[in-house]
Design a protein around this nucleic acid. Structure first.
Lengths: 154, 154
DNA sequence: GTAGACCTTGACGCCGACGTCAATGCCAGG
DNA sequence: CCTGGCATTGACGTCGGCGTCAAGGTCTAC
């Protein structure tokens, strides 16, 4: 099949497939006219990549799984290199989750404290039966909470 | 004080301070020679920014806190807009943590399963050795919050 | 008067995973 | 023949938070 069909069947875009090819993740054979030619196995490789990416794996981290599949193994995680990636990822996840839990606690404490202070001020400044709470929330895209890129000399 | 001194006292770089200024986050007065001039209040604003950034807040999210301080309030979170950011962040954190916990479980299960299958075949493993764990796991796709644009049609 | 330590603005680089043109080629249908 | 829908490569844009030059101005010390 050609790139458009593979993209559609996998629910992705041709741009993505070409990108994966530049990474060597999903190389394609070529038809006589220069068009990329894919088969069902390529679809499987692609699905493996997508599954891992949905878990938050970087594309490079999916490589061992893809190569494992291409080596003829029944599953992408039938190889030691893949298991190593799993383990690394688990450690990363644990660290990240712990970090976020810590942050959550601190932010929660800050909020509670600030709310307490605000309530004290409003009680002294506003009369009873006043207006409702302000609603200044706007649309936003969820980011992650991370750091670890070298900042703050410390 | 000048930019170099402020940077040093805050443990950051001049580049960062100029960047904050372009964002309007930390505007500076100017000395006669064109040099940026900061005072102790600016240092406080900067410290507020840093604290929030350490929590994983984006720079834009620190703006209400900074403006709150500049408005003369005792703390950056003495204003309703700041509290709104806190609450939004908490919700984000909760969502992110829940997501990561789910992923962790799935990856853990995958690993366990793969290890079982591997054990049945062979018992050879490679020694690990990574550069260091980073926490860059996102709750989901950072560029768009849903799959309407086409990936993983399912 | 000159080194050199500070400052200025401007502009490009980086990371990840693509999106989005642009210019052009291939092929089937009317 | 032309239209139109697929394909090709190439290259720049995006987002966030800066790093890293580059070319020059300013002030201080010797």
């Amino acid at each position: 099949m050609r790139i458009g069909e593979l993209a559609e069947r996998a629910g992705t875009t041709t741009r993505t497939l070409r990108y994966y090819e530049t990474l060597g993740l999903l190389p394609a054979r070529r038809a006589g006219n220069g068009y990329r030619a894919y088969d069902e196995d390529d679809l499987r490789l692609l699905r493996q990549i997508q599954t891992l990416r949905d878990f938050g794996f970087g594309l490079e981290e999916t490589r061992p799984f893809v190569e494992c599949l291409r080596a003829g193994h029944p599953a992408g995680d039938s190889c030691p290199a893949s298991l190593a990636v799993y383990r690394r990822k688990l450690a990363e996840l644990d660290e990240c989750i712990a970090h976020l839990n810590g942050v959550r606690q601190q932010v929660g404490a800050q909020l509670a404290e600030a709310e307490r202070a605000m309530a004290a001020l409003e009680a002294t400044a506003t009369a009873p039966g006043g207006p409702g709470p302000r609603c200044e929330l706007g649309p936003h895209d969820p980011h992650d909470g991370d750091e670890a890129t070298g900042r703050r000399a410390g």
